[in-house]
């Protein structure tokens, strides 16, 4: 992985982390809380993808990047479902 790609990955992670923290510190009305939580989980999924792709080098291994991407995506969907469950029942 080139130094430039690593630097871009790091800046992306910093931006995504700051957005997550700002969303969590924001005082949302009750109805918007679930939307904020969903956004936070999507941001976590994006951060994990950046670490897998840039830091762990999967961007240069498409087969494995696809496999890890699918597994990570399914895991985040599971987390999202469990997070939203109390609001539905």
């Amino acid at each position: 992985m080139s130094q430039r790609a690593l630097r871009t990955g790091w800046l992306t992670l910093m931006a995504l982390s700051l957005i997550s923290t700002v969303i969590s510190l924001w005082s949302f009305p009750d109805g918007w809380q679930a939307l904020a939580g969903t956004a936070i989980l999507i941001l976590a999924w994006l951060k994990a993808r950046v670490i897998l792709g840039r830091y762990l080098g999967l961007d240069s291994a498409p087969f494995w990047a696809r496999g890890f991407g699918i597994a990570l995506g399914l895991f985040c969907v599971l987390l999202l479902g469990l997070y939203l469950a109390p609001l539905m029942f």
């Binding site: 992985m1 080139s2 990955g9 790091w10 982390s17 700051l18 997550s20 510190l25 830091y55």
Partner: peptide
């Protein structure tokens, strides 16, 4: 303390960047 944990996230992803940078260097 969400702020402290947020700072720790910045600390850890920056640490990861430096560790990743070591190999090309």
């Amino acid at each position: 303390n969400r702020t402290a944990a947020g700072i720790n996230t910045i600390v850890l992803v920056t640490s990861g960047f430096l560790a990743a940078l070591a190999l090309p260097l």
